[in-house]
Amino acid sequence: MISAQKIGRNIIKAFGYLTGYYSLLCYFIKNISLLGRAPIRYVFYKQVYFTGIEALSKITAIGILIGIVIITQVINIAGANAVLIGKILIWTVVRELGPLLAAIIIIARSGTAISSELGSMKVNNEADSLRIMGIDPVDYLLIPRIAGITISVFILTFYFQITAVAGGLAFTSAFKGLPFLQHIKGIFSALGLFEVAVSLAKSLVFGLLISTVSCYQGFSVEASITEIPQAATRAVMQSLFLVFIFDGIITLISFA
């Protein structure tokens, strides 16, 4: 009985969150033109800097390592077959791992930061300070953040895929004796516009999900400082959960 009640409560809570995310996303889409206003655009640029540019070194390192790991495993299993290596690299990095890993890195780096930052602004009545200056805190704080994170995830995904593929190819050419040009041929034989388009569509959806969830959770903090880490945890877990769900859905629709 108690567990049934608990399940019911959790379902209601989850439904409440999903409704909130949907409303915020609709508000963002409806008011995206606010980015044309200089002070809001300034917050957007800062967000792109913190989420996108500051994450570049980590994305580069992880991308190169992932490329090397995948190629090493493929060579161990199937031998030094350039066409097969190219295909597997495209299948794993471009179709799946690129968007997913870039999203996970952004959730870990920026999802927590944004929900904590917004939460502490709410606790310190800074959202009210904006309101009494005639500045809508959702317009000023959330819209540029959602736009900034989404653009950053989109670009970082593309960048991650390039570094992973290039890192893998450079490694095999340098240490496994496979000719670089043969590799490139293998890559291009497996790479189609459709793969790239699906991967970028995924990154766009993931960006919107991560930013909406993190902003919503941070902004739902009310008055207590203890709510901030709870909001950050919810932002991370729910972003991850939604990213995996939507990854599955898009993959099924596109490749099944």
Binding site: M121, E126, S129, L130
Partner: peptide, 28 residues
């Protein structure tokens, strides 16, 4: 936008520098 309020704690935005804080409403 026609009302100025000076709060007891200043009401400044913590992640903006002082200059950015001061010019925010007039810029907005």
């Amino acid at each position: 936008s026609r009302v100025g309020t000076v709060l007891k704690d200043g009401g400044l935005i913590s992640n903006l520098k002082v200059w950015e804080n001061i010019v925010l409403p007039v810029w907005y």
